[in-house]
Simulated assay, not measured.
Amino acid sequence: MPSSMITGSMVDVPGLLVGHFTLKERLSGCSVVLSPPGAVGAVDVRGAAPGTRETDLLDPSNLVDKVHAVVLSGGSAFGLDAATGVVRWLDEQGIGFETGYGRVPIVPAAVLFDLPVVRTGDDPQARPGADAGYAACQAATTARPAAGNVGAGAGACVGKLFDLDRCMKGGIGHASVRVGPWVVGALVACNAVGDVLDPATGQLLAGARTADGLQLLDTQRALLAGERGSRPLPGTNTTIGVVATNATLTKAQAKRLAMSAHDGLARSIRPAHTPLDGDTLFALATGTESSPVDLMLLTVMAAEATALATVDAIRQARGIRTVWGDIPAAKDLAT
């Protein structure tokens, strides 16, 4: 599917709701995917510097396989607290894993690092917390979610290997792919150290810019030619997301879906899964489609939806002005 024809979103998977909350005090926020009863969850972490919650629980060898929500957040490790607000909201709705002593909501989460993105007048100490996660749940809907500079993508940037003053704006994006009775949707917040390209054409869309700031440098080509970047701290970059399907999957099959979705990141981000990124993708299977599973097809669809959602995040992003310089978006830079 050409990226210029990106359609659909995570909520095309029946039963899912998506909500964003963006801070007023600074460019950061969180996004939540609320799943229907019985949704099976899994995760695959490929980056070397992740910030996560409840990922061990999602290992196929462990007990609990049902997930009630997934949280993506800015704010680095501080943003993991957004999941606490989601747990509180789910508890108020009577949703959770039945223990015999009360219901415990299962809410995995992953965060990205957006702390340097501060505009004039912003509060640098403002980060998504429990109240932000709660508000994202209140905003969750089956309508097509907003994209770009919202929620977990509000402060996301890409192309940061050659200093922040040469990076570009990232964001959060959506896409879905349908084949027969199956639908796979993806929600991706792109904050990569690498560049983002359109896998359909190979065209670079956003990333590190040349020293004059007017053109894309091509990070991978520069590295292979012997150039070296500023070596940003590990964990200051990450692409996080959720891929979901209406199929009925086991926890191990859902894990395979998350693993294959990372192929979509590798197609659209160059380089991906680096020592400086914490790339993490969750998978959800809602089970609303009971046809015999074609896992091969679903994995191909997951990679495609993830690549398209990553491109959508970049195409929907808007340029911003920070205290240390302007960060243009793909639409601001002639490529």
Rank of each mutant, 00 (worst) to 15 (best):
I6H: 09
T7P: 12
P14R: 03
P14S: 07
L16E: 04
F21K: 05
T22N: 01
T22L: 01
G29N: 07
S31A: 07
P36E: 11
P37Y: 13
G41E: 02
D44H: 10
R46P: 07
A49Y: 14
A49S: 15
P50C: 07
D56S: 10
D56Q: 13
L57P: 09
L58H: 00
P60V: 11
S61P: 09
L63I: 12
V67C: 02
V67P: 01
A69T: 03
A69C: 03
G79A: 03
G79Q: 04
A83Y: 04
E98M: 12
Y101N: 14
V107Q: 01
P108W: 02
V111W: 01
V111D: 02
L112D: 10
V117P: 05
V118D: 02
R119Q: 13
R119S: 12
D123G: 11
P128C: 10
Q138I: 10
A140F: 00
A140D: 02
T141A: 15
A143G: 04
G148H: 07
V150P: 06
G151P: 01
A152V: 04
G155V: 00
C157M: 08
L164V: 14
R166Y: 10
I172G: 15
G173K: 02
S176K: 14
W182L: 14
D195S: 01
P199K: 07
L205N: 00
Q215V: 06
L217E: 05
D218Q: 02
T219M: 07
Q220G: 05
A222V: 07
A222Y: 02
L224W: 13
R231V: 12
T236L: 06
N237I: 06
T238H: 12
T239E: 13
V242C: 02
L249D: 09
L249R: 09
A252Y: 01
L257G: 08
L257A: 09
D263V: 08
I269S: 13
P271W: 02
A272L: 07
T274S: 08
D277I: 14
D277V: 13
T288M: 12
V293R: 14
V293Q: 15
L295H: 08
M296L: 07
L298A: 04
T299H: 01
A303H: 10
E304K: 01
E304D: 04
T310A: 07
R315M: 11
G319D: 12
V323Q: 06
K331V: 13
D332N: 10
L333Q: 03
